[in-house]
């Protein structure tokens, strides 16, 4: 049995997509010869050579634009943005162009690109190197958003992202790099838009993404002693959003807590809460609750960052407050 961690799963995922489709090319800052700032792309240049794996200048607008233009000419580019925070420098290409070109040309052109970005807090990178930008991305029609929480899901979801004819933002969480799992077999594919029940339960539904999935699972363990049986759902993709799985779970448990990393204002948890209030109100026995970060930038100091991130203990306290 081969074990792979989340960090190495990234290169594995890219390699599998490049072996499958010769139209897949990969570009980004330091991704080729250096193997990536986080060593998430080691070995790709060696395997696929300089005509498929490209180091770029520090030019995020050029990286995203080049990916869009090449996709419109029939290639399947993967573009890396080193930190999700840097999406701020190329949001124009992503939001105004990649996401809208299909609509604005009434389907003549599509933009099948995957934008990979390392995101998330918990490693002491401070306010400009710790964001996810997932909620912001989710608010843009035409852009798919994927947030894998395990190595196996990362590999499987990535194959779907590269094959997808629409632009996909694929946010890899830096705090999960050392998470290990059995290497999924060749051909492993996880479809976009299918959430995963990662723990079955009957009393309450916890919904989380990325690094909050292990937090939610830990919270579920903490309340088990009090005989509260939590179901935990990993959304895996924010767009398309699998509301069916969430509503099916809420139908069973009648209680819902959403655990989101980040301030949560207009975040994915706001959207899920609104949709459950709309479509699942009569299934609920209690108000929907959210456990999010406070509405501040991500602080640097370890002690403050630790306070900022939702914790299993705070989620458990929220769960217990229902009873």
């Amino acid at each position: 049995m081969t074990i792979i961690n989340y960090r190495k799963a990234i290169a594995e995922a890219i390699a599998r997509s490049m072996r499958e489709d010769p139209k897949v090319v990969f570009l980004g800052e330091d991704v080729a010869l250096a193997g990536g700032a986080f060593k998430t792309t080691v070995g790709l240049r060696e395997e696929f050579g300089p005509t498929r794996v490209f180091d770029t200048p520090i030019s995020e607008q050029a990286i995203i634009g080049a990916a869009i233009g090449a996709a419109m000419r029939g290639l399947r580019p993967i573009a890396e943005i080193m930190f999700a925070d840097f999406l701020g420098t190329c949001w124009d290409g992503i939001a105004n162009h990649a996401a809208k070109i299909r609509y604005m040309t009434d389907g003549a052109y599509s933009v099948p690109i995957v934008i990979r970005a390392h995101g998330g807090a918990g490693l002491g990178f401070g306010a400009q190197h710790s964001q996810l930008y997932d909620g912001l991305a989710m608010s843009i029609p035409g852009l798919k958003v994927v947030v894998p929480s395990t190595p196996s899901d990362l590999i499987g979801l990535f194959q779907s992202a590269v094959r997808d004819p629409d632009p996909v933002l694929f946010i890899e969480h830096k705090a999960l790099f050392d998470v290990k799992e059995e290497m999924p077999p060749e051909g492993h594919v996880v479809p976009l838009g299918k959430a995963q029940v990662v723990r079955e339960g009957s009393d309450l539904t916890l919904v989380a993404t990325g690094a909050m999935v292990p937090v939610a699972l830990a919270a579920a363990e903490l309340v088990q002693d009090r005989r509260i049986d939590c179901e935990v759902i990993d959304l895996r993709t924010l767009t398309p959003l699998d509301m069916h799985s969430v509503l099916r779970s809420v139908e069973k448990t009648s209680r819902l807590i959403l655990v989101e990393e980040g301030p949560g204002i207009c975040g994915w948890s706001s959207e899920v809460a609104a949709r459950v209030a709309d479509e699942g109100f009569w299934m609920l026995d209690a108000p929907i609750r959210r456990v999010c970060s406070p509405p501040t930038p991500t602080p640097f100091s370890e002690s403050l960052e630790s306070l900022w991130l939702p914790k299993a203990e705070s989620v458990a306290a929220e769960i217990e407050s229902y009873w």
Binding site: V25, T51, Q61, A62, I63, I64, G65, A66, A67, I68, G69, A70, A71, M72, R73, G74, L75, P77, D92, G93, N96, H97, I101, M104, T105, A108, Y109
Partner: peptide
């Protein structure tokens, strides 16, 4: 698209990187 008119873009400068991508594709294909 049938005339390879890849678009008229209304955000100043935004299409230049996209054009670079189109040219990049030509070197690969």
């Amino acid at each position: 698209k049938s005339l390879a008119l890849m678009g008229s873009y209304a955000i100043i400068g935004s299409h230049i990187p996209i054009a670079v991508g189109a040219a990049w594709a030509s070197t690969l294909t």
